[in-house]
Design a protein around this nucleic acid. Structure first.
Lengths: 167, 167
DNA sequence: ACTAATCCCGATTAAAACAGTCAACTATTC
DNA sequence: GAATAGTTGACTGTTTTAATCGGGATTAGT
């Protein structure tokens, strides 16, 4: 298992998709704009997601991507697994280029650790993430007046943070 | 949080160190040979580990590295954190280059996930790994005759596995 | 039939990270 | 003072990331 920003992009994009898939296919162009991820990069990622049977595609105008399975049937682990290379994880790929017992010993340990992380990510499903996010957005709606107002507040907040960090 | 082979190397090396630190300083040359990790790469990794206060160094003949803290006071997370770059994790580094609320939303989610993984790695301590490994080695000692014998068996096992995988 | 929207695919690239190397240096022990 | 071992910084080759480009193929709407 490997955890990089690549996987994060994929999960982010999938959350975006999960949040609107009920209104029909979601275009990569839309995700790209909302999440600020390069369209072509998304194409690469979704190519893999599609081949792994996580999303379905609809071509032509009005097309886009839809979820191939239920929201709660898609784990974070399977998203990451789909976009990251064939999880080699060990140096010798289980084939035993290990020079002797020593090496095998240590990566056994490591793989145990890996399995645990993996298991956790397997237990987190897209549905939870999407629901959490929708709830959060709803709260923000009630909370502070118009969208313009919210954005204004947000920028001020960032500026303050910057000031603190940079001295 | 990022999980790569770099972190694995560091954890592996630390287990090796943990297994022999009671007999005095352990040299990188020794770790390098036993774990088949390039000496110079280890130098880089241990430079960081030392600066993070995870290991201490002893110079001169008979020198090497020792643990700066107790075995059970060193978590896997802190090892990985030490060798991996300043865990930026988010695109905007918390400083809010985020273009608007949307982006911040998604990486909040991701960071929650991250925190969880992190928390798990924080809960696994070097002590457990070292003890587990020592126990395993002891079992192997009893189990199968001489070291040469064991090595022989291991190689045969690898050959069989290869045969299965390749055809 | 035409056009525009959309997915699909491969080649290419720039920059970063990974993994390793090298050389010169300092501190310590014998 | 010679040998051992850590310390440091610069450097290199490869892989991965992230993005770009240029073209397809498919389909809805007109």
């Amino acid at each position: 298992m490997r955890l990089t920003t690549k996987g994060r992009f994929a999960v982010t994009a999938m959350i975006d998709l999960g949040m609107r898939h009920q209104h029909g296919p979601v275009t990569l162009a839309g995700i790209s704009e909302r999440q600020r991820i390069s369209l072509s990069y998304l194409e690469q990622l979704f190519g893999r997601l599609r081949r792994q049977g996580i999303v379905d595609s609809v071509r032509g105008p009005g097309g886009g991507y839809t979820l191939a399975r239920a929201l709660d049937d898609i784990s974070v682990a399977c998203i990451i697994r789909a976009v990251d290379e064939p999880i080699d994880a060990t140096k010798c790929g289980g084939l035993g280029n290990c020079h002797d017992d020593r090496e095998c010993m240590t990566h056994d340990l490591w793989m145990g650790l890996n399995a645990h992380i993996y298991q956790y990510l397997e237990s987190v499903h897209l549905g939870e993430l999407v629901r959490k996010q929708l709830k959060k957005e709803a709260e923000e709606m009630q909370d502070g007046a118009s969208a313009t107002h919210k954005r204004g507040r947000h920028i001020v907040g960032s500026a303050e943070l910057k000031a603190v960090v940079h001295g």
